[in-house]
Amino acid sequence: MSAPTRIKPPLGPDNAWWWEMAAEGKLGIQRCQGCSRLRHPPRPMCGDCRSIKWEAVEACGRGTICSFTVLTHPQFPGYEYPLIIILVDLEEGTRLTSQLINCDPADVAFGLPVEMVIHTDPDGFNIPVFQLAEAR
């Protein structure tokens, strides 16, 4: 019997491309082709210019911790606890929700620089996560 795995994201036309980029080891950002604004989380229309044309660009993967929470309870199968969830302000200007790995929960703090790494689950699922930039 295989070990339990994380809940896979439900995929649809508005988000599957992001996870496909992740599967290729890339962190994606959606860019409007009408006004060139970056947006995240992805959505089918630009709320500024109402264009439905967009393209995916690859983020540099560097950012800083905007906020965080350390989850200890309840513990769901497929995740390791304590689980550090972070909001990352990317250098490109968008913000995303992700996980901080290779870090003691006592060491996580606001404003710390982080960098994206791709974590591969035992079942081969790729997910973009972050580690402290100094941990390189």
């Binding site: 994380r6 809940i7 896979k8 994201p9 439900p10 995929l11 649809g12 508005d14 988000n15 989380p41 989850l71 769901f76 497929g78 995740y79 689980l83 969830i85 995303l96 929700t97 992700s98 996980q99 997910i127």
Partner: peptide, 11 residues
């Protein structure tokens, strides 16, 4: 799809 951004991370 909204929750897809949180589920995979365990949030």
């Amino acid at each position: 799809i909204h929750y897809s951004w949180y589920m995979a991370y365990g949030m």
